[in-house]
Design a protein around this nucleic acid. Structure first.
Lengths: 150, 150
DNA sequence: ATTTCACTTGCATATTTATACAGTTTAATG
DNA sequence: CATTAAACTGTATAAATATGCAAGTGAAAT
């Protein structure tokens, strides 16, 4: 369980539901198999450009694009916010404007189970060769995008 | 020196130069003629939707656009022409060139059943977390986009 | 194998932020 | 005027976050 995969996990968790404190994030990560302390999370959030906003409904962590955008452009994993799938395709959420770059990268992998990609501004659709391949493709993409982080 | 003029002052100060802590903001406000305590600033920042981001150069307060996003709701409904769905996704037709804005707005709603959106020029594709959620998502989007028409 | 260096992490704690509570002010009402 | 309620703020402190330091790990160099 290395840092970059934990970072992806953090981004996915905070995108999925409101996280109000680092303690809470710590618990959520624990359940996902990442045992870390609050101190580490404080550092992670800083590296990821995640901010704690004070919504009327309570505090919550969110990816803050303004700070995120300044980071190294060449590192794909920093551009990816979330990777998900339904029954028919994989959807990758990226920072604004980064979808084409991420899609192009995936295309270059020339994986047999990937028919093609379609990129908008901050979203990439990945179409599998068959809906039965969805799980494979999802995992493959996660691995591929994380591996480049190191 | 009432609260709203202080709020305006706060927004101006944080826009002009990096403010790293509420103490620092307190000093800056003091020089501008607003004598308040850190406790009050904590409340002010919450009301204004200002977040503390962790830039590599150090922490800093910024207006968080996510809280601004809600103000746009009333405009959105005029840009949407049609909302439909098939078995797999929701399609929104908009006025020419308005799709990215509408997609961005839908993203900001952060609904758990919406994996992502993809915008072209006048068309937005909305991908549900599962095809089983299509009906929910369709209804949700209609409510969110059209209900504001009044 | 040993050394060195860069990177990562936890612990303990300093720093910063949020909030319970009480006091003050303002405005509205009987 | 007296009374009540709501809004605002400061004090004190609770809660949350950031960080100095030391330890651990792994890769590259000698």
């Amino acid at each position: 369980m290395n840092k970059s995969s934990r970072h992806l996990a953090i981004k996915q968790i905070i995108a999925q539901r409101p996280i109000a404190s680092q303690e809470e994030l710590c618990d959520a990560l624990g359940k996902a198999g990442f045992e870390v302390t609050q101190a580490t999370l404080s550092r992670d959030l800083k590296e990821l450009g995640i901010a704690r906003i004070n919504a009327p409904e309570g505090p919550r962590y969110v990816l803050h694009h303004q700070s995120e955008e300044r980071r190294l452009q060449s590192v794909i994993s920093y551009e990816v916010e979330r990777i998900d799938a339904n029954e028919v395709m994989v959807i990758i959420r990226t920072l604004p404007g980064r979808a084409p770059g991420v899609a192009s990268f995936i295309d270059s992998l020339q994986h047999r189970d990937i028919l093609g990609t379609l990129a908008g501004d901050d979203t990439v659709l990945v179409t599998p060769s068959s809906t039965k391949k969805i799980r494979n493709v999802l995992q493959y993409i996660k691995d591929a995008l994380i591996a480049r982080a190191a």
